[in-house]
Design a protein around this nucleic acid. Structure first.
Lengths: 223, 223
DNA sequence: TCCCGTCTGTTGTTTTTACAACATTTGGAG
DNA sequence: CTCCAAATGTTGTAAAAACAACAGACGGGA
């Protein structure tokens, strides 16, 4: 496969951190990578299935979503360009507890997880680096999930919002920042009622805690 | 160090899965492992600190706990014998977002995380296996956290309880099972009010959904 | 054995959230 | 530009949870 058009994305991906373009190209081959495209709202993976490949978002955004029988939806995570999804399920062979949905037109590169995890017969020298990168990525995800649990553990709508928003401000290093969710999605991510959330946001703005416009928020100093 | 007394525990640990006693002994040495003991309620790690070692519980139980300024406590995870804690923070160098507390008299073996993650100069042959095991462990934790998020995402006390209890029943392969928490701890784990939880449990028992005694629960068929 | 601290369960009140129904705004497509 | 659909905001009501305060059960140590 010709990976030239994706090379810069792949190089930016934490999966290939520290590897040269040359090395990446050889690895992509070795791991029998494939590229697929998806439309907005299309399912990339469905809950319950088993998967054997790790996805890397080349462009677009996808959501990791948990949906129950009654259509209640909860967004587990937001995955953007250069980021991976499905590693945990592909590596363990566990049936998916979540679905993966394209939020917009998306292009994804898939890697066979078996070929990543095992040193290949031809003893491709960079597998070790790859596995180490993978370790780092999954470790990072653990921390993300821990943070999400922290938000969800708050008792009230307001506390959940503040927990999430301040973590985003911290991440961006700026009290003025943009979030990757619209209102409905944010409510699904924080597992709270959308209308109650909107009301609470308005109340917080009235109290001078923060300001917002669409997806842009600004936390105010409350000294 | 003489690891003989801990050998069976280490062999049962997923970290050393697939390694012989001989190999484990040499690795323990190579990773400059140390053993420490803690009393009930003693802090093993405190939130905010950086750690450079991965803990393996030799016996006893510890809780991964998130405490905020006002003393609100939320139990992130329960760690029993043979299990690891702190990997994510030790490997990334991130300051701890949680504390680790001994729930009873506990003995822990600590491994230097740097020495685990890097192939050692003397090229200890089993590091690769170790890293692969670590990858599996952390991947498994990701799935655990995902499950916890699923519980927390439920809207009501009852739904959270059912989500947690049925996952425990599934894990034990038996509708009759024991949980590692007392009532207060369960409430902290599920981020709900203890008294409301007790009330709800009573209500569910009245409705014939389940039965319980202390830490033992039984989910009934509701056909 | 008794005492005390902890755990568990109970109840009533207050506060908050979920829910439903609808109004308003926004952004695209034609 | 107009229309439509989706997103966002508003409000009132019903339901649920949080909170507080206390009673009873239990277990370990003196």
């Amino acid at each position: 496969m010709n990976i030239t058009p994706y090379l810069s994305t792949l190089q930016d991906s934490p999966l290939f951190q520290g590897l040269s373009a040359q090395e990446i190209a050889s690895m992509v081959n070795c791991m029998s990578a494939t590229v697929k495209e998806y439309d907005k709202n299309q399912y990339i993976h469905r809950m319950g299935n088993r998967i054997s490949s790790i996805g890397l978002v080349l462009f677009g955004n996808v959501h990791i979503v948990k949906e129950d029988f009654w259509g209640n939806r909860s967004i587990m995570a937001h995955i953007g360009p250069c980021e991976l999804f499905g590693e945990a399920y592909a590596l363990t062979g566990t049936p998916l507890e979540v679905s993966v949905i394209a939020m917009e037109p998306v292009r994804v590169m898939f890697f066979n997880s078996g070929k990543i995890a095992q040193t290949c017969p031809t003893s491709c020298a960079f597998h070790t680096a790859l596995i180490r990168n993978l370790l780092k990525i999954i470790t990072g995800k653990t921390l993300m999930l821990t943070q999400k649990i922290e938000h969800l553990s708050k008792r009230s709508t307001r506390e959940k919002l503040l927990s999430y928003l301040s973590s985003q401000a911290l991440r961006s290093g700026n009290p003025n920042f943009e979030i990757p969710f619209n209102r409905t999605q944010l409510a699904e991510y924080l597992a709270i009622d959308r209308s109650a959330m909107t009301t609470e946001l308005g109340r917080m703005r009235d109290e001078g805690l923060l300001d917002f416009d669409k997806g842009r928020f600004e936390l105010k100093q409350t000294i």
